[in-house]
Design a protein around this nucleic acid. Sequence first.
DNA 1: ATGCCTTCATGCCGTATCGGCATGACCAGG
DNA 2: CCTGGTCATGCCGATACGGCATGAAGGCAT
Lengths: 336, 336
Amino acid sequence: MSELRRLRYFLAVAEERNFTRAAERLHIAQPALSRQVRELERELGVELLVRTTHKVEPTEAGRMLLERGPALLEAADSLWRGVRAFADGRMGSVSLGYGMSAGYETAPQLLVAMGEEAPGIEVSARVMAFADIVDSVAAGTLDVGLVRSALPEALPDDVELTLLRRERQGVVISSEHPLAANGADSIDPAALDGLKLLLHPRAHNPGHYDEIMEICARAGARPEVLYRGLDFDASYTPVASGAAVTMVGYSGRIGLPSGLLWLPVTPAAFIEVHLVTRSENNSPAVKRLLRVAEETSRQHNWLTGALEEPVAGVRNRRALGLDGADIGAIDGAYEV
Amino acid sequence: MSELRRLRYFLAVAEERNFTRAAERLHIAQPALSRQVRELERELGVELLVRTTHKVEPTEAGRMLLERGPALLEAADSLWRGVRAFADGRMGSVSLGYGMSAGYETAPQLLVAMGEEAPGIEVSARVMAFADIVDSVAAGTLDVGLVRSALPEALPDDVELTLLRRERQGVVISSEHPLAANGADSIDPAALDGLKLLLHPRAHNPGHYDEIMEICARAGARPEVLYRGLDFDASYTPVASGAAVTMVGYSGRIGLPSGLLWLPVTPAAFIEVHLVTRSENNSPAVKRLLRVAEETSRQHNWLTGALEEPVAGVRNRRALGLDGADIGAIDGAYEV
DNA sequence: ATGCCTTCATGCCGTATCGGCATGACCAGG
DNA sequence: CCTGGTCATGCCGATACGGCATGAAGGCAT
């Protein structure tokens, strides 16, 4: 039962109704073809062709094979093509996990890009806690994670980081707050000294916590940390009441409750967003996603300056020339 | 792309997630299997399995192949099975041609038997003239013919006859006719002397014409032949009017216009009905039909005595013991 | 009717493929 | 650290496959 080649051979003969021409079409010698077809008949125990010296006619069984055979070959071909599509990342599935902070802009834009660039890849996205993301990626139950302030030295050996975005940080503050009420379009971290700062518990993502505190510390500010849960919207109430402020990245400006502003910190401070993947055994689809992510990052200037394309509802905007050395020179306040 | 065997091998490994066990299942040695799978990957240019010394995991492409592969194997198997079905006559198609005389009983019963015994064979039946049947069979445009009084010596060399039925002949006559009116349940051919006898033109089927005439001649009768066309029903009008009689086989009793009787001739006279086929290049389906026909003939006692199971509407019936030597001893008249 | 030409089949041979056996490399678990 | 299980590699013989040369058969033209 050595199969498809012989079927192909038979079909060529049955279509041409001539061994010699079929042999030419198949680029083999006529005697070889003659024997292969005979062998196929022997294997099946079925007479497929009635041969006379000047004519080749398929039997009824042969006609049946001639009708249905090509579909089988096509099915086989389609299977090989499909396998290749999976192998080179045109098809596949990727699981992506990210925190709420990435849920408003970074992840959606990545998903849109995947839908455009790699429509054959199914990305199943879920919002997860930082620690879960890293653990799941390490354990192999998650393909790709999207995390803020990941510290390579704090991660398992077998995961890898890819820098996706350097995100300008800003303060989320009530528009009635003294620091915002006078029409300010940025905030000096120094002004946060003594204020209540709403942050996730340090244990949730120590690196991120430390980075935020470092931004304040650099400016000499020592805010009073107020811990909030993981529920994004509900946790803004202390901010809305003016009792506290919080610090999130540029993408955090989206989806703010009304009455809240996102004001960039000046001097500019950035926090990095990384993709987390296993260092090996990544499927072609995952590799494809990494390439698409890189492209997305480039297109949105995620590594240079995130303030170039403000969303609707801008309160204040300064158009600036921007070069690589000048990251952070861009100010502007946004309101939803 | 040397095909399905390697796919089978891969599937075994991917299912077992273990080369050694898969090799056992396939009845080959593990190294051979290992190399075949590796070869498949090389051919496709695709990594299908991630091997560690103690674990075998399919890649995404491998999982895809694992999902869709079995369907391809099944499609291939189904194709081989189908071919075999055609080859051994379980499936196929046969064209059958017969004259009107066979259209009332012989052909229908054969078709019913085919439907029961070989439901996979499509029999396309058409009513044709005797000469057309023989010519078409010889030319290969008709697979099987059903003819009366075929003379082997008058047929082309490459057709073959199979005796299907020996049919008791009878006279179709008006019930008002003097020969029938007195309640006679058979007719001596001698009584036909001088009567008008309705027959197809001799050219239509010379053998049959001659046989009918011979039956009369043996009894010393010389009827006056009246030619009728091929339209069965319409041509009975001279008989219905009492102006003529005709002679047909036992199966001709069916479908007679009312007022007409079929009375067997006594002493009994038989005319043979044959299947005509090409002597070679017959498809398995045709051969199958020949076998089914033989069985049908046996079941209906077509070769020994046709009067054992009279239809409804019997006017007169004698129950008789019948043995092979006594063919023709059975009398009986039937009316529709 | 004869000879030629076309076509399919057969014989023979070199090469590639395949499978088996022996063995090596690697890793998990006791 | 050793043992057992697992997959990979080397080598060899058998089989399959394809090519070339040649044979057999039937149609067609002269």
